[in-house]
Each structure stands twice: as C-alpha cells, then as structure tokens.
C-alpha cells in the first residue's frame, strides 16, 4: 500500500490488517507511562490541513508522535498557501523537503488523489484526511474499529447512517468500508440530502428514521450544518431535529446492544440530543481514542518497512 486515498483502495485483508495492527498498538500502549514506540523513528510526517480540524489533525499528530515520527504541521493560513501557492507546488515542496508521508485535509474533492498523482515520482505517501465531500477513509477505519469492539465481526450487522449524506465524506467512506466488511448499511436522510444515484449504492435508503432503528445494530449520526437550510435542503433546524435528530425517545427504540456513533463535531440539539450524546450508548470518545490507534496503524502500514515489527 503506497497511499490511502479512498476506502475502496482497501481490500478486506488490508482492513483486517490495519484494524488488527491498531488493536495490537492499543494493547501495547495500555497502561504504559511513556507512550512512545520507536517504530517510525527518522520518518517525517507532514499534516497539511486546508480546512479547520481539531480532532483529525490532533489524532494524526499524536499517532505519529507516539511512534516517534517527526510530525510537522502545515496549515493553509500559516504557510505560503496564504500567498496563493498552488496545491501542486506545495505538495512538491513538502516532498522535496523530505516528507515521507503527507496527510492532507482539503476542501476540494479529489485533492488527495491529485497530490498522489503529482508525487508519483517521489517516495512520498499520501493519506487522505478528508477531501471535500468525497472521502475520509481513516474515519471509516476508526468507525469500523469502534463498531468491531462493540459488536464483534460486522458481517451481517445492520448499520444505520443518518444525516447529510449528500455532503458527507464520512458517509461515502463508511458505505464503502462497511460494505466491504459485509455489513448491511441503511442510509436515512431527507431526499434533498441524498446523492444522485444513491439507490445504486450497496445500501438500503429510507426517509424514516424511526422505522430504520428497529433491528439496527448501530446508528451513526452525521453532522448537519445549520447553514444547509439556506440552500433549502430543509426548512429549519427544528424541523430537521424533529424528523432526523437522534433523541432519547428514538434511542429507546434502538435494540439495547446497539451503540451510537458520531464523527464529530456534534451539533447538540440538531442531529443529536444532548442526552443521547452523553449517554453510555454513545461511543464518541471511543471513536476519538480508536482514531489515534487506527492512524498509527495506517502510518505503520504505509511507512514502516516489512521487517519492522509493531
């Protein structure tokens, strides 16, 4: 594996390998006073973030540092990007400066793929940390890991994803990855927030959240930006919350074993109620915790030589 650009780059064995590695790393670090492995010593990881992000950026940075990689952050406002440098030139600069891996967050769909193409002749790996409304593959991996911890194998499990699927890179990556893992995916959204052709995706589509919760093994709630209502995607935040928000009443309909996930940042009172967000059923902080281990595993599989053991 040279790059991680899309969840569809990953075969079933790749996913298993990454998640098993993540698990092993988690166990290794458990209870350690000094959380530092020498695995990626001498490797340079650059996180280039062209969008605001707290959790993803911190997660990658921690992941790199816990494996002793040199992690350098480039932010779009604090670099030559602000002066109008092209993404291509920035990518070539980072590669020339010695980056072994570029972790890219960018508002343009396909940006990570473009960077990987521009760096084809360099040894640099590219990790897509979210490109526009396209994909966010490490989010899907950490979601799968969190679900696996909670439910065991995901084959045949019914995972409900509710929210703004149209604009969600998390949804696209999760649909691909969960399908690869044999799970049954149900997408719930108003018709305005579903992509064209979604009925040909390997999913079941419904506009009825209540109905979808029965028999669900997990619910993944997607963020819905309130400004979407200005594009007439839905009439009001209140109407959205009533029809598609996950509240306590709906939580009660969900089978007891089924957890609630959210990729964050959560808008409480909109897509998820305060009580559900803080309920024991919510695995939001587990997702963040697993995010570090999964990203360690991704960096490990991309950067460590075959001979380097975890």
């Amino acid at each position: 594996m040279r790059h991680l650009l899309s969840a569809s780059d990953l075969g079933g064995e790749d996913v298993a390998a990454i998640l098993d590695t993540a698990d092993k790393l988690k166990q290794t670090l458990l209870g350690r006073e000094v959380r530092k492995l020498p695995t990626l010593r001498g490797r340079t990881v650059v996180t280039a973030f062209y969008e605001n992000s707290t959790r993803t950026r911190v997660s990658f940075e921690v992941a790199g540092k816990w494996m002793s990689a040199d992690v350098i952050n480039v932010s779009a406002t604090g670099s030559s990007v602000g002066k109008g440098e092209s993404l291509r030139d920035t990518a070539l600069t980072l590669a020339a400066a010695g980056a072994d891996c570029v972790v890219l967050r960018h508002p343009a769909s396909g940006a990570a793929r473009r960077v990987a193409d521009w760096l084809a002749d360099h040894g640099t790996s590219v990790v897509n940390a979210g490109d526009g409304t396209h994909e966010h593959p490490t989010q899907a991996l950490l979601d799968a890991q969190t679900l696996r911890e909670s439910l065991g194998e995901l084959t045949g499990r019914r995972i409900v994803i509710v929210g703004d699927v149209l604009h969600s890179r998390v949804a696209r990556s999760n649909v691909r990855l969960l399908h690869r893992l044999g799970a049954e995916v149900v997408l719930v959204a108003p018709p305005t927030l579903l992509p064209t052709g979604v009925r040909d995706w390997p999913v079941r589509v419904t506009h009825d959240l209540d109905e979808s919760l029965e028999g669900a093994d997990a619910v993944m709630v997607l963020r819905v930006q309130a400004e979407r209502m200005h594009g007439s995607f839905f009439p009001s935040a209140r109407e959205y919350a009533i029809a598609y928000g996950l509240n306590e009443r709906r939580l009660a309909r969900l089978p007891e074993h089924a957890p609630v996930l959210h990729p964050g940042p959560m808008i409480r009172g909109m897509e998820i109620s305060h009580a559900v967000a803080d309920s024991p059923r919510s695995l939001v902080t587990d997702q963040v915790r697993n995010g570090v281990h999964v990203r360690m595993a991704v960096l490990y599989h991309l950067l460590a030589g075959e001979e380097t053991a975890v």
């Binding site: 769909s109 396909g110 490109d131 526009g132 409304t133 396209h134 994909e135 149209l166 890179r169 696209r172 992509p195 064209t196 052709g197 979604v198 040909d200 995706w201």
Partner: peptide
C-alpha cells in the same frame, strides 16, 4: 457546480 449531476459525480463528491 463541478460536474454533471449524476451518479459519477455523486460518488466522487463533486457538486452537481
């Protein structure tokens, strides 16, 4: 808008 509104653009996250 970035590309023809259809399954190909939707899958790639390009506004239709």
């Amino acid at each position: 808008a970035q590309a023809h509104e259809g399954p190909a653009a939707a899958e790639r996250g390009l506004a239709g």
